[in-house]
Design a protein around this nucleic acid. Structure first.
Length: 511
RNA sequence: GGGCGUGUAGCUCAACGGCAGAGCAGUGGCCUUUUAAGCCAUUGGUUCAGGGUUCGAAUCCCUGCACGCUCACCA
C-alpha cells in the first residue's frame, strides 16, 4: 500500500501500539449496547427515578474529539446513532488519558465502557471508565464536522464529489448517514413488496440469469460464453418468458425480484444492471393487475415511510388508490393535440407530427412514433400516479389484443414523478398469435441485427401446452426506491453503480 | 457517440497571465462539562496527464483521461 503522510502517521501509531503490547485489531469486542440502546436505557432509568448506575459498553467510530486538558469529549457513531463520550482524568488517570490522546484518531473504532449520565448542557453521555481500540483506521475519513441545529445533525464539508462517493461508497456511507438511510428505505421497500405478494399467495421463484435466448424486452444483451457447453449465453434482459412458462406448469401466482442486464446507455434512470420485480397471476387481466399495483405501491409506501403521500423532486405526490386512469390515445391528444386514432399508418402519423413542428424519426413504425409522443410530451407531465392504458400492438408483442380491436393491446404503464415505474398487460396466451408476433418483430428489426430478437421456440412449445389467461407485471425497483427516498438519479439508490474503470497508478491509458 | 461544464492540500473551496491560499483534518503546545469547543504555533501541493503559446501558465490553446449535466440510444 502507498501511504500518504497522514496515513503514515497512523501506521506509526499502529507500530507503537504493538510495541506496547496493544493489539490495534483485536479479535473480539465486548459491546453490550448500541448507542441508541444506551441512551434509551438511561432515559428509562431517569424517568423511573432510579438511582442505580446505568452501565454499558458501546462500540463505534470516533467522529469528533474535543480534548480540553484534563477532560475530553468525543462522539462515536454506530449503525444506529451517535453517543457522546466523556473522559476525565479523575477516573482514568493521567496515563490512560494520554493513551487515548496518543493512540486514537477520528475514524477509529473504539469500545468504551462506563456509566451513563447527563452533562451540564443536558446531553446524555457515557462517562468512560475503560476503553480499547477495536479497529485502527489508517486512511482518514473524508473530513466532515457536525453541528447540532434544532436537534438535527448538520454535517459540514461532507464528502460530496459524486465520483468519489460512487467509487468509494464505503466512505460515502461512513460519513453521510442520509446515504445509509436511502439504502434502508430501499431494503424496507423490497421487504414490503415481498410481504404484499406473499400474502396474496404468490410464490417467489428464481429463474436463469444466463439464458441461451434472451427475450421479454427490447434491449441489447450482454453476451458471455460457456466453455464446456461451447455456446454463447446472454445475461437476461427480463424474466418474463421464464416466469410465464411456470404458469403453464400450474404455478398460478409467481414472482421474482432480481437483476436484469441491458447493454444500453446509462442515464439518470438507467443503469446497465438494475433490479426488477415481475409477477404473473393466472386468471387475472390487466384491470385487476392495475388495482393490485396501486394497492401494492400504497402498501409499500405506508410500510416504508408511514404515509402514502411522498415528496419527489419538489412535488407532493399522493399514492392513495385509486390512481388516475388515462387512455394512451386521450393522453397524447391532450398534450399534443394529435389523435392517434385518426392516423392509422406511420406515414399519416409522422405527417401530423411534422405539422405540429415535431421531427419524427424517419423509418419509425407507427407504434414507435406513438412511443415517441408518449416519452417526449406526455411522460414529463405525469407527476401524480397515472395509469396509461391501451397500447399499440406493434410495440407490445407479448400482450393480448383487445377483443374487437386487434391493433390495441390490453397493456398499461404506471407513471409517477414524470417517470415510467411499471409495465403490465393481459398476457398473450395464444401460441399461434404469439408466433405471428415474433415473426412480425423479426421483420421490423430485420435491417438491424443487434435489435432483432431470436425466435424462442421453447417458449412457444410451452405455450402450446396451454397457458391459463393471466395478467403480468414488471416494475423497476430502483425507480421505486428513487421515488420513496426522493433521489433523482438511479445511482443514488444503487450501492455500487457502474463507472468507467478507474485509472490505475503506473498504467498509461491508451488514447 | 454528440454538445456544454468541471478537475487546485485528506475534505469543502479560493486564487483566473505575475510569490498557490483559507477553513476543517493533521502535527506541537495551553485548557476539568465541551459539542462546527476555543486560543497559540505549525506541516502538507506532479494545480488530472501530456504537449504548446508566453519573459512568466493553476489561469490561454491543443490532445488525452475521469466525472457531472444534457441530447441521442434504450417497445
Amino acid at each position: 500500500m502507498n501511504f500518504s503522510e497522514l496515513e503514515r502517521i497512523r501506521v506509526e501509531k499502529i507500530e507503537r501500539m504493538r510495541a506496547r503490547g496493544i493489539e490495534p485489531y483485536p479479535t473480539r469486542a465486548e459491546v453490550t449496547h448500541t448507542t441508541v440502546q444506551a441512551i434509551q436505557l438511561y432515559e428509562q432509568a431517569e424517568s423511573a427515578g432510579s438511582a442505580d448506575p446505568v452501565q454499558v459498553s458501546v462500540g463505534g467510530r470516533l467522529r469528533a474529539i474535543r480534548a480540553m486538558g484534563k477532560v475530553t469529549f468525543a462522539h462515536i457513531e454506530d449503525g444506529w446513532g451517535r453517543l457522546q463520550l466523556f473522559f476525565r482524568v479523575n477516573e482514568l488517570g493521567e496515563a490512560e488519558m494520554e493513551r487515548f490522546r496518543d493512540d486514537f484518531d477520528l475514524g477509529d473504532f473504539i469500545q468504551a465502557s462506563g456509566v451513563m449520565f447527563r452533562t451540564r448542557s443536558g446531553e446524555i453521555t457515557l462517562h468512560v471508565h475503560a476503553f480499547k481500540m477495536l479497529s485502527k483506521a489508517i486512511t482518514p475519513l473524508p473530513a466532515a464536522k457536525d453541528e447540532i441545529v434544532d436537534g438535527k445533525v448538520v454535517r459540514h464539508a461532507a464528502l460530496t464529489d459524486p465520483e468519489t462517493r460512487y467509487r468509494q461508497r464505503y466512505a460515502d456511507l461512513a460519513v453521510n448517514p442520509e446515504v445509509r438511510e436511502v439504502f434502508r428505505i430501499r431494503a424496507r421497500a423490497i421487504k414490503a413488496l415481498r410481504e404484499y405478494l406473499d400474502n396474496m399467495g404468490f410464490l417467489e421463484v428464481e429463474t436463469p440469469i444466463l439464458q441461451p435466448i434472451y427475450g421479454g424486452a427490447a434491449a441489447r444483451p450482454f453476451v458471455t460464453y460457456h466453455n464446456q457447453l461451447k455456446q454463447n449465453l446472454y445475461l437476461r434482459i427480463s424474466f418474463e418468458l421464464y416466469l410465464k412458462r411456470l404458469l403453464v406448469g400450474m404455478l398460478d401466482r409467481v414472482y421474482e425480484i432480481g437483476r436484469d442486464f441491458r447493454n444500453e446507455g446509462v442515464s439518470y434512470k438507467h443503469n446497465p444492471e438494475f433490479t426488477q420485480l415481475e409477477f404473473y397471476m393466472a386468471y387475472a387481466d390487466y384491470l385487476q393487475v392495475m388495482e393490485i399495483t396501486e394497492q401494492m405501491i400504497a402498501y409499500v409506501a405506508q410500510q416504508v415511510l408511514g404515509t402514502t403521500t411522498i415528496t419527489f423532486d419538489g412535488n407532493t405526490i399522493d399514492l392513495t388508490p385509486p390512481w388516475r386512469r388515462l387512455e394512451l390515445r386521450q393522453g397524447i391528444l391532450e398534450t399534443t393535440g394529435i389523435d392517434i386514432d385518426q392516423h392509422p399508418t406511420a406515414e399519416s402519423l409522422a405527417e401530423a407530427m411534422r405539422a405540429k413542428g415535431m421531427q419524427p424519426k424517419p423509418g419509425y413504425s407507427r407504434g414507435k412514433l406513438i412511443d415517441t409522443l408518449l416519452g417526449d410530451y406526455l411522460e414529463p407531465t405525469l407527476i401524480q400516479p397515472t395509469f396509461l392504458y391501451n397500447y399499440p400492438r406493434d410495440i407490445s408483442p407479448l400482450a393480448k389484443s383487445m377483443p374487437g380491436n386487434p391493433l390495441i393491446t390490453e397493456r398499461f404503464e404506471g407513471y409517477i414523478g414524470g417517470m415510467e415505474l411499471c409495465n403490465a398487460f393481459t398476457e398473450l396466451n395464444d401460441p399461434l398469435d404469439q408466433e405471428q408476433r415474433f415473426l412480425e418483430m423479426g421483420r421490423d428489426y430485420n435491417a438491424d441485427d443487434e435489435e432483432r430478437h431470436p425466435m424462442d421456440e421453447d417458449y412457444l412449445r410451452a405455450m402450446s401446452y396451454g397457458m391459463p389467461p393471466c395478467g403480468g407485471f414488471g416494475m423497476g425497483i430502483d425507480r421505486l426506491a428513487m421515488l420513496l427516498a426522493d433521489r433523482h438519479t438511479i445511482r443514488e439508490v444503487i450501492l455500487f453503480p457502474h463507472l468507467r474503470e478507474e485509472d490505475r497508478p503506473g498504467e498509461k491509458s491508451e488514447g
